[in-house]
Nucleic acid binder design. Structure first.
Length: 152
DNA sequence: GCCAACGTTGGC
DNA sequence: GCCAACGTTGGC
């Protein structure tokens, strides 16, 4: 079982939305590195939900991977900003996962706090200028995070 | 709203 | 294959 971190702007889709929906297809990822990370996910993996572009940005909850190899429907949707005219129905370019809601943390673990706790090598999200929206989280880092939440 | 970081596109 | 131009992300 591996740990991940997945970003979303809460205006677009938040942990509250996921709590309501229970599960959600994580669509709209159009970055190859992020896509490759998604492709290496397994059912049962856990992912920290990170709210970006908000005050404060940070980790707000936990979800799990419940389905893999999901064809991202937005690539065929002309109305979607994620529409990809190069993608063919018989050969989709973008696959993703379905995530399931696990919990909302009692308080946000802010980016500021993450910076104080982890080095850029330990946790990619604290790297300056990091724009990657899906990234792996080292087991030890994940355990520290979960412990921090229990303490909070 | 600004702007640094940085990924992508396209001309050559 | 290089790299300038361009577009987007996301913290501040």
């Amino acid at each position: 079982m591996a740990y991940w971190l997945m970003k979303s702007e809460p205006d677009a889709y938040s942990i509250e939305d996921l709590r309501r929906d229970r599960t959600e297809v994580w669509d709209g990822v159009r970055n190859y590195q992020a896509r490759n990370f998604i492709a290496s996910m397994a059912i049962g993996d856990k992912a920290f939900f990170y709210h970006s572009n908000t005050k404060p940005p940070g980790i707000v909850g936990l979800m799990e991977v419940v389905e893999i190899n999901v064809v991202d429907p937005t690539q065929f949707d002309r109305e979607s900003k994620y529409y990809d005219p190069k993608s063919l129905r018989e050969k989709p370019r973008w696959h993703t996962v379905t995530v399931g809601y696990l919990e909302t943390f009692k308080s946000v673990i802010s980016l500021d706090e993450l910076r104080k706790t982890f080095s850029p090598e330990e946790l990619w999200v604290v790297r300056q200028g990091n724009r990657l929206s899906v990234m792996p989280v080292d087991d030890m880092v994940a355990e520290k995070l979960l412990h921090k939440i229990q303490a909070a």
